[in-house]
Design a protein around this nucleic acid. Structure first.
Lengths: 222, 222, 222, 222
DNA sequence: TATGAATGAGCGTTCATTCAT
DNA sequence: AATGAATGAACGCTCATTCAT
């Protein structure tokens, strides 16, 4: 999570010095990400990707056996570090989970804000429904790890009296859903608040409600 | 070589298989919905739709001028009743909006529970990138009506002191996002709670948190 | 029914039949000219052209963006040399125009005599109604250059006293029409003089009448 | 030929008084002529013809077995009376043929001027190249009768010393070609003199040249 | 007779993938 | 390793023709 490569570009590349600068697969993925994000998966032609990557159509097939493999590679590349870093934090936690939830949502929000920092998840939101393999892969690599982690956190909080008596598995949807919907409205329908995407404000607003909503019923927490 | 291919159309006619005019546009839309939901818009061939509807390829074009029009017809059919009924309720309201929000979410939940209740929205999300008109249409017909209505409701509630001081436009995401995410997790990623889809329980759980979260500040939350 | 038709593209690839890049655009145009002349534009399938050219359907689109572009390419190829060479001769002229007219008709006649000499013009007439761009293109590139040139020549001759007082614009039809009709009768209706096409004799006979008909009035004709 | 119906509409119809006014085939041909003339044969759909004729698509097939038969019917209807009347005049002639030629061209010109009077020949000019049957039929019914008749006239004139020593069969092209080209330029390419179609002036101008050109070489004719 | 809903072969074009160089 | 010309299956849409009514 710390030294594990600040830019994700060089993951899984063996340093064999052949002719060129040696980052072909990643250049291709960069090009694919840009175009898939811009125009969607299906309308993007392999030739477009090749041109964007500055290589020939055929060269792509030296690294990726099919167009779908490109999308899968994209997700694999982006998904591994993200999931791990976030989940470590959650798994290590003890005590009142509300601050962690706050931290988690803030962390995700700041990831979303960065340029292309959230491009792949946004792509998944758009394309998962159309490309089942994507859905499966994203589910296995991200969702099946993240959701139970947060649910466990909430369950802990309920048991410890930090959180009102709610169903942890369902509450996860209340925790994450608003942020998810915010991004989806923007990505799919181009709908964003009047002042801009404003992810920070969205998270703030959501946290205000969430914290109050999750707080134990009686008086103050604990 | 001289008289080659004079009229490819006149050869080998097999006796046609005729049927009466009961394949109404609705039957075609049913077939289209089934296949689009199952395999997606682009991979579904017009001939598939025709076969599913029990008619010939050309017959579809008697009722719909293009494949895209089929998708649009699907949305229009699903969209009109939903939007109207829900929005009337909201528009007519005065006073504490929390009960209305509860009612709205319950209403949406029960609509989603029905067979194919979420098929069209999912289709819209799936295909929005590939067929932008679809996204625009759904946005104009549904989202641009529903979101402002709920936001207005919340704004009223804030002014009337029924609701904590929140940003109405952003709060809409907190209200609707969880339900939406619940359904999408199920439909796209195949993820549902251990006990089944349980939309009612999801709504209950969400409402518990939401009502507490939106209630005016009595003491100090957090 | 569940996994129906996931990817129709990946099944049953037979080893392709490859060929080197000698199928230049000209080969394609040759094939197209042959088939268009034989069967007409509309009844000729792109696949027919491809087969005739010894390449695949898709390869044609490497060189021509559409079927119409094929027809346009055909015309452009045939038209450029003809127009230029003939018109230069006319434009440079001063003095008695009758020898030039004689030369012009002889030149056109010899061009028409060659193999496929009239194929493109006939094609243009044939398809003008169905593909209006063709008519416009031929008009702009050939007719609108040639007719005014000859008309100007005649006008000059009238002014210089070399030619009887006739309307130049209409006289062009008398000059060119007979040759044109001769070829069209042959090509379209299969009608030719008993002794064969005999273009040279046609031109001779026509010139005899034309020269006498255009000569300035000495006594009283009629 | 006399009492046999002055307007060509009812040819070949048996007077069985069924439901309607009884001129269906001719109404259909009228509609077809209008549309074929306007947009060409191929782009005109059978349904267009039906609508124009005020009947249903299927009804056309009660009278004409195919689209091509429509075109053939059109030509057959128009061709028979025209050819006969013009050729009678020519066949009956003795003596100087130049006045007859003048009369013939004038007659054709006036036919061309009339509204739709020349629609079918114009259609043939456009479509003969694309629909071989049309070419054949028109050749047999019109051209093979007209050309030899005029050629015979010219041959007579040459023998009688009224006309310069020319090849009659080739001279026919000089006689008719200009008028033909005038119409073709207009029909196919939309090219007409600045003052309008001006057929009369075209014929006048052409006749001026033709008469002088055909006159015996020595002094004035006769 | 007449209708017009229905048919279905047909075709232009696209593009993921292959492979000779 | 790299190219890009070539392939060919696929699919949306048209329209002449048919036939149940």
């Amino acid at each position: 999570m710390s030294q594990q490569n600040p830019n994700r570009r060089d993951i899984g590349r063996k340093p064999k010095f052949r002719r060129r600068a040696e980052a072909r697969p990643d250049d291709i993925l960069d090009a694919a990400l840009k175009l898939f994000s811009l125009q969607g998966f299906m309308p993007t032609r392999m030739e477009d990707v090749a041109k964007e990557a500055g290589i020939s159509k055929g060269a792509i097939y030296l690294y990726f056996p099919s167009k779908k493999a490109l999308l899968e590679g994209l997700i694999r590349r982006a998904v591994v570090p993200v999931a791990d870093s976030a989940l470590e934090m959650i798994a290590a936690h003890r005590g009142d989970p509300l601050p962690v939830i706050r931290k988690f949502l803030t962390m995700v929000a700041s990831a979303v804000k960065g340029p292309d920092g959230f491009a792949v998840p946004k792509l998944v939101i758009r394309e998962a429904a159309a490309v089942p393999e994507i859905a499966r892969m994203y589910r296995e690599e991200v969702i099946d790890k993240a959701l139970p982690a947060i649910a466990g956190l909430i369950a802990q909080g309920v048991e410890g009296g930090y959180i009102r008596n709610v169903d942890p598995e369902l509450t996860v949807r209340t925790v994450v859903g608003p942020l998810f919907m915010h991004v989806l409205l923007d990505e799919v329908f181009g709908i964003r608040p009047d002042e801009g995407l404003a992810i920070d404000r969205l998270v703030d607003n959501h946290l205000t409600i969430l914290m109050a909503g999750l707080a134990p019923e009686t008086g103050g927490a604990r």
